[in-house]
């Protein structure tokens, strides 16, 4: 009886050791390689699909990336009926923060798809110059990887299709994503609030904390009715 159990355990052990464990190990390796080499694989697949195309390619991008920046930095006021109001999904501006090396498109809207293209403005906030808070988010890998290094006094330049704005940072803070006092959508003051996930540069994307950079407008055309 003992001998029977011993043989049975040995067989089970061999099965585990020489079949299941290597398979599990191979799967782990496979997943890791996929994760690490995802960009290479996707590029290779893209090249391959181009070679094997059997119909004309479609290069249309549903996200409107056409952006004509305003150039006149001397404007102090603009009538609303003189500007082209941004449309959801379009590029509405360009954000540049020289001190931390940030330069990115600013989209009107902040869904997952748009946030892959650049920074996204929350449509329940205000466009630059209108009065009120302009709330803009960006991923902590791109474009706001260096946002955590922003300092009080740094200048944020926002070039829209209708005006060029400069904001000066007056505060930074780390707050939970559920904290509604982290931003004020009721104010009439011309504010720009940038935020991203905190901790930055972490493999864990979905964290509860956000890094906020608060800034006040120092120049740019005020939009009037």
């Amino acid at each position: 009886m003992m001998e029977y159990h011993c043989i049975k355990n040995q067989k089970k052990g061999k099965l585990l050791a020489y079949i299941f464990t290597p398979i599990a190990f191979a799967l782990i390796w496979f997943l890791i390689i996929i994760l690490l080499c995802n960009t290479v694989f996707s590029r290779a697949l893209a090249y391959g699909s181009m070679v094997l195309l059997d119909r004309p390619p479609n290069f249309s991008d549903p996200v409107d990336t056409l952006f004509v920046p305003a150039t006149d930095e001397s404007l102090t006021a603009l009538k609303l009926d003189q500007i082209e109001y941004p449309q959801y999904g379009s590029v509405m501006g360009q954000i540049e923060i020289e001190s931390i090396g940030v330069a990115t498109k600013m989209m009107y809207g902040d869904n997952n798809k748009l946030l892959k293209k650049g920074a996204g403005m929350y449509i329940g906030s205000r466009i630059p110059g209108y009065g009120g808070t302009c709330l803009v988010s960006g991923h902590n890998t791109y474009p706001f990887k260096n946002l955590k290094n922003i300092q009080i006094g740094d200048i944020i330049k926002v070039t829209t299709t209708y005006g060029v704005y400069q904001y000066e940072v007056y505060k930074t803070d780390v707050r939970p994503d559920s904290d509604k006092t982290a931003y004020d959508l009721n104010t009439d003051e011309q504010l720009l609030v940038l935020y991203t996930c905190f901790w930055v540069n972490t493999p864990i994307g979905n964290v509860k904390e956000r890094f906020f950079a608060y800034s006040r407008m120092v120049s740019g055309p005020v939009l009037i009715h």
Binding site: L35, L36, N38, T39, D110, L115, G120, Y122, G124, L135, S137, G138, H139, N140, T141, Y142, F144, D177, S178, K180, A182, Y183, L185, Y195, T196, C197, N201, T202, P203, I204, G205, N206, V207, R210
Partner: peptide, 16 residues
Amino acid sequence: SAIIKTTGGFDAMTIL
């Protein structure tokens, strides 16, 4: 939907 979005990215070099 929520005002504050999920803005944590996935960086292959970071997870290496």
